[in-house]
């Protein structure tokens, strides 16, 4: 699969082929501009490949009709470096919002949201606003929002990029716990500490090409 951005002189991802099994925990590492973030965007159908296919959950999404994309995205949870929480909503409301806008009832939200907030370790802080929470706690809210719908895949784009090392480790433990429920976790990072500690599959990308794919790898 190849992706070239308009006006770019060389492809961002050049003839990359990778397959991730259900239940895997995979790190994509590489320097800035190596093309690792494009992988997340391709899996979300935010961008399309110029050549080749992107198959997620058994569906080829590179040729998917645009009206089918929303329901496809419901099977994927997403966490970003900048959390992307709504500042005028509490932790509870932020998570409930993700359910409400895909048509779940308030009753479902009342049952599921406290559960998932408890899971990410935010029990008792449901009614805090994002600015009343630390960075790590905000990221936990984001993970709760990504996971509340029980997605098959959790995409994490530099989730620890804005956090200190100790908080990062806590977030990683959380992602590990989610992975153990059977959810595939795909994480893009350049945090060598974390990669070395987790000892999971590592795929290294450089200049748009895969230079290493190691089962229990380190940052190298």
């Amino acid at each position: 699969m190849t992706k070239t951005y308009p006006k770019a002189s060389r492809p961002s991802l050049d003839d990359v082929s990778v397959s991730i099994e259900k239940g895997d925990f995979v790190f994509f590492i590489g320097p800035s501009g190596s093309g690792k973030s494009s992988i997340v965007k391709l899996m979300l159908h935010e961008i399309k490949p110029n050549k080749g296919k992107v198959i997620v959950n058994g569906k080829e999404i590179s040729s998917m009709r645009s009206w089918k994309i929303p329901s496809f995205r419901r099977s994927i949870g997403c966490v970003f470096q900048d959390f992307r929480l709504l500042p005028n909503k509490t932790a509870y409301e932020n998570v409930a919002f993700a359910l409400e806008v895909i048509g779940k009832s308030k009753a479902v939200a009342r049952r599921v949201v406290p559960e998932v907030l408890e899971l990410v370790g935010l029990g008792g802080k449901e009614h805090r606003y994002p600015h009343e929470l630390s960075g790590g706690e905000q990221q936990r809210v984001a993970v709760a929002r990504a996971f509340v719908n029980r997605p098959l895949i959790l995409l994490a784009d530099e989730p620890t990029g804005n956090l200190d090392p100790d908080t990062s480790i806590e977030i990683m433990r959380l992602l590990d716990r989610i992975n153990r429920t059977g959810t595939t976790v795909v994480m893009v990072t350049h945090d060598s500490n974390i990669v070395n500690q987790m000892r999971r599959r590592v795929i290294e990308i450089e200049g748009g090409r895969i230079v290493r794919d190691q089962a229990r790898g380190v940052y190298g």
Binding site: W67, I69, P70, R74, A98, V101, I102, R145, N149
Partner: peptide, 15 residues
């Protein structure tokens, strides 16, 4: 912000 989150979690276009 709301629109970005809605798109991310898969809210339908009409919604």
């Amino acid at each position: 912000r709301e629109v970005a989150v809605m798109k991310l979690v898969g809210a339908s276009n009409w919604f």
